[in-house]
Design a protein around this nucleic acid. Structure first.
Lengths: 120, 120
DNA sequence: GCTTGACCTGGAGTCGCTCCAGACGGGTAA
DNA sequence: TTACCCGTCTGGAGCGACTCCAGGTCAAGC
């Protein structure tokens, strides 16, 4: 399939996909005889994974490392697992940030409601 | 207090505080006779709020709007409450993203473990 | 009176996209 | 055939939100 379909399937914009390829985050995208990119189902799975990793805050640098490991084949699976386990930890920290922020907001909103309740 | 203390208390770097001031996110920071910024306790509370809003993904544009409302005084409290309620909604969406990503990771990691379990 | 350290401003650099101009090639319509 | 879309290509500029740095000021301590 071509880039627009890859885009709708992965959630990444066509521009972002091209940018990721340039940045070495995507191993080997074939080209058709017309010179256009052709995406395999495995390419799509990979893009979807990248989509979630980025969306939840993995830096490009780490994704580049992950992509390099992927290119090395199955021997790198323990290291790849490490990367994902680290990212799970990052998700936990982010969730804690969301919780803390929710508390701050709840408190602030309660204060606002109080002020509204007793208008000057 | 001065900028370094404001930085440790708010969690924002001194550079970021100065940048936020330039960008109109911080209403009125006094200067001492030496020309240096002096932060009041209310300034600090404000910075802490900005810290949490940014850390959890509120765009600067919206924070600028929020700051403008703050400068208008108590009359703008209903609108400010709106902004914070919208941000609560954003937090919920982000949490959903984290959950979805956690699922994707769990699945991927399980696959890796399987492959490790049956080495070629 | 000299050094040290915190602060200042203005401006350049970075990351991760996003948008755009200009070119190409394939498919439909007049 | 010619005309025109459409989707894609590349290279490069622009942007949001910082981050870092050079070069300067000033107060305090030795």
């Amino acid at each position: 399939m071509r880039i627009s379909e890859a885009s709708t399937r992965s959630g990444l914009s066509a521009d972002t996909i091209r940018y990721y390829e340039r940045s070495g985050l995507i191993p080997a995208i074939r080209r058709g005889p017309d010179g256009l990119r052709r995406f395999s189902p495995e390419n799509i799975d990979w893009l979807i994974l990248l989509y979630w990793l980025r969306k939840t805050g993995m830096p490009m640098k780490e994704m580049r490392r992950f992509a390099a490991l992927y290119r090395e084949g199955t021997a790198s699976i323990p290291e790849r697992k490490e990367v994902l386990l680290n990212h799970e930890e990052r998700l936990r920290r982010r969730r804690a940030d969301l919780d803390r922020c929710a508390e701050v907001l709840a408190h602030k909103i309660a204060t606002y409601r109080k002020i509204e309740g007793e208008p000057s």
